[in-house]
Design a binder for these strands. Structure first.
Length: 611
DNA sequence: TTTAGGG
DNA sequence: CCCTAAA
């Protein structure tokens, strides 16, 4: 573990932090946590400098919190939910077994960062897959999956080793992926396909691992040679002993499983807390956080109410929202949050967030830090354009005198432009209006410059990930003038592979058509992506799956600039489509699944497949 | 409000 | 993605 933390010879601080996490985790009691907030908001840089958490990180936490809460709620409501969940875990959680951490393999910091990101990003694998597979007895679908593999079949793999490998590129993603044979360039392509962004990393090994991680939703991509089947990663050989060490820990496995079934974490958290081994590393960290979040929440709930500061999401939605879905969403989110009593950012911490003027519609979060006893306001995170070519990791500002002054001025400028602080809401609104109508080139320039510098400075020290594929923030927001005078934002956000996977999983779990459910449960952490989006995407996926799969090798044409969807996923999509079209409800398995969703009566209601 | 479909 | 009719 330590090894892992030690990146580029500046691991001490990190180490400390990790230690803290461990402790917290082991103790797993809010009481023992010195300062939860600090823990959450401050990370330690490679140089031992304190670095504010990125908003992505914060978001992540928030998302988790919300998830937790929501889940708790649901569980409470539906008595059977728990049992159901357990079943699910036990029956389908296994695939994740292989996923621990390539602990001993921190090739470089970037890799680490990326790993973390992947991990945080995709916490929900196709958990339901095995389940669905079980009753996916339709000849057609099964046949599909059982097609002979072109490549070598890995022993010990699941029974459904559908591999229709063939054409280069993403066709490589079909069924079984043999990243080993890909050139760096190809790897890059795959990478892009997987994460929706480019990468500059030239390290083949890293690329492979990263991709594998992305595809498997697993962090355990330790081996140099491996194959990905469906969404599971199958090792070719166990050259990694360190890995095994991890796996040795049953607890850890449990934890991992839970993590991967993010929604279910709650049901198992209790078991985990006590026994979680210290060896839990990165993956462990996540778990730790989750648990932590839980505890924190609990504590919070018990504690007297405090005024809850608007969460980032809240602000985000307020500011970027379209009246349409946002009003709904934000409302709902807020409501739920309120009801549950989540206070992700207690105002009492000495490292608290203060929201300042958003810059050009982007929220600038500054942190009133008491470092050194001075109440310095430092930009915690500032949102940079995170568009498709997501190569720009959220700019982190190091606690550098230079950097600080720089930022300070920057912020100041922002404030000057938009005026002094105002109420969050009104502020955001005003800003939104402004930003949509007028662009400030200067600021923009400044922004990008800064971005660069800060990126350089803190280039990879992310302890937690900064979205490779699933950041929770908004991206290309293009304002589009509307005929009726209004200005509408048309933000196009490419679907990342992980999102697609989540979607597919969601459909498999809840069924196509129940978009709102899927949205709430599987996409809870994605403030964008409305249920409508999901629906649309699914429609597209279906189209794609039916179009491409049959012609499998025929120019799967990655010519498309857009992210190609790996064959396994398409297969699964088709499978699901068939499944749902034919027997949406009847199966016991299905009922089991349905039972989980709080089945408001419609449990036995067959849902016409979406075809 | 959410879903299904068309554009 | 957006928009809207229908439920």
């Amino acid at each position: 573990m330590e090894k892992l933390v030690e990146v580029e010879g500046s691991g001490e601080r990190k180490f400390e932090v990790t230690g803290l996490e461990k402790n917290n985790f082991v103790l797993s009691s809010p009481r023992h946590v010195a300062d939860p907030v600090v823990y959450k908001l401050v990370r330690v840089d490679g140089n031992g400098q304190l670095v504010p958490a990125t908003d992505d990180e914060l978001m992540e936490v928030e998302g988790l919190l919300e998830n937790e809460k929501r889940e708790t709620h649901i569980v409470a409501d539906t008595g059977q939910a728990l049992g159901c969940i357990s079943n699910e875990v036990s029956s389908s959680g296994m695939p994740q077994l292989e996923s621990s951490e390539g602990l001993s393999q921190s090739e470089n910091t970037e890799a680490d960062t990326e790993k973390l990101s992947a991990q945080l990003e995709e916490t929900v694998p196709f958990g339901a897959q095995s389940l669905t597979d079980d009753h996916a007895t339709q000849p057609g679908s099964v046949g599909e999956r059982l097609k002979p593999l072109d490549g070598p079949i890995q022993g010990g793999s699941s029974t459904s080793a559908g591999c229709i490998s063939s054409t280069p590129d993403f066709s490589k993603l079909k069924g079984e992926i043999c990243l080993d044979n890909l050139s760096i360039k190809e790897l890059h392509e795959v990478f892009k396909a997987t994460f929706g962004r480019d990468t500059t990393v030239k390290d083949k090994l890293w690329l492979k691992r990263r991709i594998a991680m992305g595809l498997t939703n697993s962090c355990d991509v330790s081996t140099t040679t491996f194959v990905i089947k469906d969404n599971k990663l199958v090792k070719k050989d166990n050259e990694d002993s360190a890995n095994n060490v991890n796996l040795a820990t049953g607890k850890e496995f449990q934890a991992v499983a839970v993590e991967y079934n993010g929604d279910l974490l709650n049901s198992l958290s209790s078991q985990i807390d006590d026994h979680q081994s210290v060896s839990a590393v990165r993956s462990g960290n996540n778990v730790v956080e989750n648990n932590f979040a839980n505890e924190d929440l609990a504590a919070d709930q018990r504690a007297a109410k405090r005024v809850r500061k608007p969460t980032k999401r809240y602000i985000e939605e307020l500011s970027e929202a379209e009246p349409k879905d946002n009003s709904g969403n934000s409302g709902r989110l807020l409501a739920s949050t309120k009801n549950i009593g989540i206070r992700p950012l207690p105002s009492e911490s000495h490292a608290r967030l203060a929201r300042n003027a958003p810059l050009e519609g982007r929220t600038v979060i500054t942190r009133l830090d008491s470092l050194g006893g001075f109440g310095i306001q430092v930009p915690c995170v500032y949102r940079v354009r995170r568009s498709r070519p997501r190569k720009n990791v959220t700019a982190l500002l190091k606690f550098h005198p230079s950097g600080m002054s720089m930022t300070a001025t920057f912020i100041k400028r922002g404030l000057d432009v938009h005026g002094p602080q105002m109420g969050n809401e009104s502020m955001n609104k005003v800003l939104e209006a402004k930003s949509s109508s007028e662009q400030t080139p200067h600021q923009f320039a400044a922004e990008s410059n800064k971005e660069k510098s800060s990126t350089d400075l803190g280039h990879d020290m992310e302890l937690k990930y900064v979205d490779p594929s699933g950041d929770t923030s908004d991206d290309n927001v293009v304002t589009v003038p509307t005929a009726k005078g209004g200005i509408r934002r048309k933000h196009h956000r490419a679907w990342t592979l992980s999102e697609v996977m989540k979607l597919v999983e969601g459909v498999s779990k809840y069924g196509a058509g129940r978009w709102s459910e899927i949205k709430r449960l599987a996409f809870a952490s994605y403030s964008y992506r409305t249920s409508v989006d999901l629906k649309d995407k699914w429609r597209n996926l279906l189209k794609a799956s039916f179009a491409q799969t049959p012609v499998n090798q025929g120019a799967s044409s990655r010519k498309h600039p857009s992210v190609p969807i790996p064959a396994p996923i398409l297969l699964r999509v088709r499978e699901l489509a068939d499944m749902q079209a034919q027997a949406p409800s009847p199966n016991l398995g299905a009922s089991k699944l349905l039972a989980c969703d709080g089945g408001a009566g419609s449990v036995n209601e067959t849902r016409p497949g979406y075809l």
